[in-house]
């Protein structure tokens, strides 16, 4: 299970970074989303992968509970990622309106020459 997760995280990171390097803003957004998923999955793995019961008071013996902290962290990171995705979607839409393309290579007007 651990090895499988390691491979999945690695693949997610690789595709995320690859998409970040593409020229289209849409691919950039998907790349950012994949990077976020990879980081979240990594957090999940770091909490320890083992079967257990829900960590709620009274649900059972404490020793059998899974670690709730990574879940809380991931939930927070997902919500933040959600907000950023929403923002960047609107932003790229506006960029498409202003620049008339989704090609990042054509968005060079602010670059250092």
């Amino acid at each position: 299970m651990l090895i499988l997760l390691a491979v999945v995280i690695g693949v997610l990171f690789a595709t995320g970074v690859y998409l970040l390097f593409r020229r289209s803003t849409v691919r950039l957004i998907i790349g950012l989303a994949l990077l976020g998923h990879a980081a979240n999955l990594f957090l999940f793995t770091m909490g320890g992968i083992r079967p257990g019961i829900v960590p709620i008071v009274g649900a059972g013996p404490v020793e059998q509970m899974v670690d709730p902290v990574p879940q809380a962290l991931i939930l927070t990171a997902i919500v933040i990622g959600f907000g950023i995705q929403a923002f960047v979607l609107i932003l790229s839409y506006r960029a498409h309106e202003e620049v008339g393309t989704d090609d990042l290579d054509q968005m060079k007007s602010t670059d250092v020459t």
Binding site: T25, F42, P70, A77, F87, L91, R94
Partner: peptide, 26 residues
Amino acid sequence: IEGTIKYLAISQLSSALFLLGAGLLY
């Protein structure tokens, strides 16, 4: 808008690194 897209993309890369670091520490 162009400046913000660049700033946002690189910031999110840094946030992913931050999360990895935090995960490793945990």
